[in-house]
């Protein structure tokens, strides 16, 4: 059982002379989801890629369960670590089932065992095995593809999962769904997850611990609460500050009552009733849960109007443009 990943004074200088990582020491705790976050070029992805030896350090060491990973066979190491990348990286010539069973096959699992595993994994990420197992990646939407990406990383039951901005290429709704899904999965399976992101909202939402990086150095390590309430320095403060301001400005935090000019008076599809002081995000979440395409905005007993999904999207796009 893998317990802990320990990065010790890691330095990485690339051949062109850029120093990507400058003396990083950090512990990724057992069964916790740790987010590495920072502006682009801060070395967060490079740090992640050291953990499965896709990058070799200039100096320093990485220990998993007190054993240096650099004394181990890199191929064997990688098969014990799940890996999800931003560009998803599903193999288009293989079915979903084949994609998911790659590592189990490499580990010489029996056919019956890995076939059963494929079904379990698809169910875990809410894709019906009967429908999806024999499809090809290009027949799936981006969100569905990345669900498969997560299923593939979990297939051989690794204790460690590395995720490199896995949801950042997805549309906002799929992204939120996958974040929530990951949280549920993590609650059930308890893996040591290292998750790289540049999105503070995402980190605050899903992380147990956050490692904040800048220019190849760690600026602060802490729980989301600690980072928000006790930022270690001006950089951390500004990094959260701007993120938070953006968050407040986002139209999705406004209540649906403020979108009055987008209301329509009649619709011909079922609608979910909501109060006018619901935020747009809450309303959208309800629509997804109830599987309807419209909401009915009420104030007490009085119906103020209706908003369809398309009208909401239009409002979000146009009003965000106005705000900025």
């Amino acid at each position: 059982m893998i317990r802990i990943i320990e990065v010790k004074d890691l330095w990485k200088r690339f051949q062109d002379g850029t120093e990507a990582i400058k003396g990083v020491s950090v512990k990724f705790e057992t069964n916790k989801l740790t987010c590495i976050i920072g502006p682009s070029g801060c070395g967060k992805t490079t740090l992640l890629k050291h953990l499965n030896q896709l990058e070799a350090p200039t100096s320093g060491d990485i220990l998993i369960d007190n054993e240096s990973i650099f004394s181990q066979d890199e191929v064997a190491l990688r098969r014990k670590i799940g890996y999800v990348i931003q560009k998803i990286g599903l193999f288009p010539h293989m079915t979903i089932a084949d994609n998911i069973s790659i590592v189990p096959k490499l580990l010489k699992w029996e056919k019956r065992t890995y076939q059963k595993r494929v079904d379990e994994m698809l169910e875990l990420v809410s894709l019906e095995p009967d429908i999806y197992a024999n499809r090809y990646p290009l027949e799936l939407s981006g969100g569905q593809q990345q669900r498969v990406g997560v299923a593939r990383a979990l297939a051989a039951d690794p204790n460690i999962i590395l995720m490199d901005e896995p949801f950042s290429a997805l549309d906002p709704i799929s992204r939120e769904q996958l974040q929530e899904h990951l949280q549920e999965i993590q609650k059930r399976l308890k893996k040591t997850i290292v998750f790289v992101t540049h999105d503070m909202d995402e980190a605050l939402k899903i992380a147990d611990k956050i490692v904040l990086m800048k220019d190849g150095e760690v600026e602060q390590i802490g729980t989301p609460d600690e980072i928000v309430n006790h930022p270690a320095n001006d950089f951390v403060r500004s990094f959260i500050g701007t993120e938070r301001m953006q968050r407040f400005q986002k139209t999705s935090k406004r209540d649906v009552g403020s979108l009055r000019q987008w209301y329509v008076s009649e619709i011909d599809v079922p609608a979910q009733p909501v109060e006018a002081d619901y935020s747009v995000a809450e309303a959208v979440e309800l629509m997804v849960q109830q599987d309807v395409l419209a909401i009915e905005i009420k104030e007490g007993e009085q119906i103020l109007g209706y908003l369809t999904k398309d009208r909401i999207l239009e409002a979000l796009v146009l009003e965000r443009g106005d705000a900025s």
Partner: peptide
């Protein structure tokens, strides 16, 4: 062959030869 395919395959623990045979050649 898309570099993300190579990265995914390597990161999952395919050897060079397995990667060539199972991923790069078919693609």
């Amino acid at each position: 062959v898309d570099s993300s395919m190579i990265e995914a395959a390597t990161g999952m623990g395919l050897t060079k030869w397995q990667r060539l045979r199972q991923i790069e050649f078919p693609l």
